[in-house]
Design a binder for these strands. Sequence first.
DNA 1: CAGCGGGATTGAAACCATTCATGGAGGAAC
DNA 2: GTTCCTCCATGAATGGTTTCAATCCCGCTG
Lengths: 343, 343
Amino acid sequence: MTTPTVQAPRGPVTRKDVARYAGVSTAVVSYVVNGGPKKVAPATEAKVQDAIRVLGYRPNAAARALKLGSSETIGLVIPDNSNPFFSLLSHAVEDAAAECGYALVLTNSDGSVAKERRHIRNLAARQVDGVVLASVLFEPDLVELDDADIPAVLLNHGDAAPGFSSVGVDLAAGARIAVEHLIGHGHTNIGLAMGTNTANDLDGREKGWLQALSDAGLLEGPIVRGPFSRAGGYAAGQRLLASANRPTAIFASSDMQAIGILRAIHEAGVSVPGDIAVASFDGSVEAEYSWPALTTVEQPVKAMAEAAVSALIGADRGKSAGHQLFPTKLLVRQSCGCTRTVT
Amino acid sequence: MTTPTVQAPRGPVTRKDVARYAGVSTAVVSYVVNGGPKKVAPATEAKVQDAIRVLGYRPNAAARALKLGSSETIGLVIPDNSNPFFSLLSHAVEDAAAECGYALVLTNSDGSVAKERRHIRNLAARQVDGVVLASVLFEPDLVELDDADIPAVLLNHGDAAPGFSSVGVDLAAGARIAVEHLIGHGHTNIGLAMGTNTANDLDGREKGWLQALSDAGLLEGPIVRGPFSRAGGYAAGQRLLASANRPTAIFASSDMQAIGILRAIHEAGVSVPGDIAVASFDGSVEAEYSWPALTTVEQPVKAMAEAAVSALIGADRGKSAGHQLFPTKLLVRQSCGCTRTVT
DNA sequence: CAGCGGGATTGAAACCATTCATGGAGGAAC
DNA sequence: GTTCCTCCATGAATGGTTTCAATCCCGCTG
């Protein structure tokens, strides 16, 4: 049951049909649609607009992309869209892209190198105009993009891949501020919950933790590694609680982990921040609603997304604009001990 | 600094280049690439494969889409990707689509009719092969898709739009089970936190709540409406706590709201589930890690996503396969009072 | 040996929009 | 009246791929 249109067009309407209907050439239709530099007489334009409306003409994006060599699309590769940090990022990137009339193709690598490779290949084949990479498990695959001359932006990627621009946050500085804050509360044994590090380089957050401790002349607290998820954090929390020198404060490298840690601590009947203080990294909304509310290092996700998109499709598109670093901000709430709360 | 390839191809490599290099016609290349029905001699195939590898040939998706009239892409329109329910949905839809070689274009309507319309238009112009609509604010805009002959699937959309297939969960049944569970705990004054209903029809969850109450011969508890967000839930919680006949149990129509409600209750120094029991709808992971863990009605998001995608690009693509309903499941945890916990 | 069948390969049309070079008409200036 | 210029409009080429119809070549059969 199609809706009763005034004039039901059979099959797809092309710009040729419009031209015929309006009694002009196809070129004129093109000029009208795109408002090109070429002038079109007002009367003609009206005729064409009329024809477009009557026939329900809809430009064919594929043909346009073929001719123009641009799909008005950007790709995004993230580990997992159900992780709040990345879902917020996707949203922000989509917003920024839509602002410029670009569409966003979303792909999840799920921590799999093979999947990541497949996605990158696929995006390259689709002639996307740029790719935001927030998950780079295997750098050699980036040559796919380079070969296809597709600009890419790396997000929060530690060791800079040569030839690619990047956008991110100073992970080490952010982590240091948080750990220093914990130190300020008098803690001397501060544990760390990290992701399993895949890169050859040390994660910035781990560096920041180390720096803060050594600057304060403290010994390293226990380190636990695991997935950046609530479940991973839960397991990490249990191990930290059971560790020989149980820390009195924990810095978690993501809010998700901190949420899991909080649960492990609650279940053990230990109080936060009374017995153990917690701080983490990301600044997600969820951290604001945990109990107690998490003190966390905020990343300016929106600004980062906008910068990434603009590096891809802005005026200076794909010029490998080097590395943009954004400032973090410590959101002080209850889990660090700044406000006494009952748990 | 491009990587040193054996043979750096200048500019994009087309199938013509491959044909020339391999000493065959372009048609053969096409057959080799697509493994069409036409047979290609093994020797020839090897030559072509070789040429493809050496030249680094990459088929042009735009040209392919133009010729085939299919972009191997599906669109997804959701209210907000930073809402965990929808971010999980996006992920699941992306997975299901990628499984079939399709890419996913993600768009957020942010609750704006204008944005939703723009996105639907844009998707239609891009000749996506199907659209999953999880946010339908304004049904008339759906004709855009109908006109463009693009199949669409509605997700959890109450009143069925004629001519569109839909996938969802029996919201009323799910809500009823949860509310009945609360009644089973002896509660007689059960409040409701709902979204602001935009549809002319009553939301299924509200219906389920009403049914469970009337079946048990109970009076309606207080109703509060607000955004499906943590902040919305927080405000709702405060209002429920302050209401004249403060309920001893609350059913929230989304986990996000329940999380906010939990915070409001905590801050008021009231215990959950001791003084007020809480149950909600969605079955998100976040609900498992709240404190106390939320009893919630699980939606089989993955199955729904797969069904939606398969309705669009499966064997019976876009045949308006009617309405598929999936079963919900009550995940019983602590917030309803089934396990005594200290808060 | 002629004819035939069939598998492998080819050439060219079609898909739809963009854009350049060209053409024509009309007005203004001399 | 002629020339020149401006302003609009047009035809045709272009982009990369798919696929039909046609061709070619080889071997087999009668």
